[in-house]
Write a protein that binds this DNA or RNA. Sequence first.
DNA 1: ATGGGTGCAAATGCTTTGCAAGTAC
DNA 2: GTACTTGCAAAGCATTTGCACCCAT
Lengths: 148, 148
Amino acid sequence: MTLEEATAQYKSFLSKRNMLVTQERMLILQAIFERSDHFSAEDLLFYMQQDKLQVSRATLYRNLKLMAEAGILTEADFGHGHLHYEKVEKGKPHEHLVCRECGDITEVYSAELERFIAVLCKQHHFKLDSFQIQIHGLCKNCSNKDMA
Amino acid sequence: MTLEEATAQYKSFLSKRNMLVTQERMLILQAIFERSDHFSAEDLLFYMQQDKLQVSRATLYRNLKLMAEAGILTEADFGHGHLHYEKVEKGKPHEHLVCRECGDITEVYSAELERFIAVLCKQHHFKLDSFQIQIHGLCKNCSNKDMA
DNA sequence: ATGGGTGCAAATGCTTTGCAAGTAC
DNA sequence: GTACTTGCAAAGCATTTGCACCCAT
């Protein structure tokens, strides 16, 4: 998704809800598209302040939640005490390898795995919204370090 | 795992670490075995206070973390603002269906799914500690209610 | 003009921590 | 006796909220 597409999608979402297109909302969207990785609300706040993109903490938190509802971002909790956000991408993997040593998060994709999730839901008459798979352990780098 | 087995395992863990077997630790263990489901620290605190099992909040939090390290409990974060704990059971499923409506958590098991996780890790040279699969959506009951 | 939006600071909720007193070994 | 533990209250951190002022429509 490009910034332009996201902007269009967000504006449409906002107008459907009778919500306003504010400078702050556009600034946040822009800042998110200058980053490509996972980020926390505080990360983005810091980043925006560096860049002199002025938005208050409260507004940022309010809008990250809103953008998740709008389908621009996904929210994920890796048990690090804060939420992670990332841009929604078509065909984005939902599998995360979280390293307990360096905290690094690698995304992986397995179509087969995803097919199984769907089957599992069907079996349990569960209406799937979203899913995430968190795999905790040691990444390649850190397990090499461990041996040294 | 029975209370007796868990007690033995915990005592062995504690002595390996030169930690003491206190009344509080035994009370907490006991309380956990009186419950079968998922619980949060605050749930358990409330429950224990009802039962006149006196343990302070600080001690409870400290010991839940410890019991997770001891392999008696597992910690899971479903993005509800607090951690969930549950007793470790041999062959316990790691898949959770989390209902966005009623908050209910159903555990499901798929050996096939678990096999895929292992393969995925191997492919990425990732040393697996643990994993969890969270599936968010509407449970059978709530999706029926929705239609009404 | 007017209803939603923003910034600020205070509040919240879960969890952690410093410290003095208590207890298992 | 001497660590390790506990309880208390205070601190910490991410996040939310009340409210007066502001701005997009």
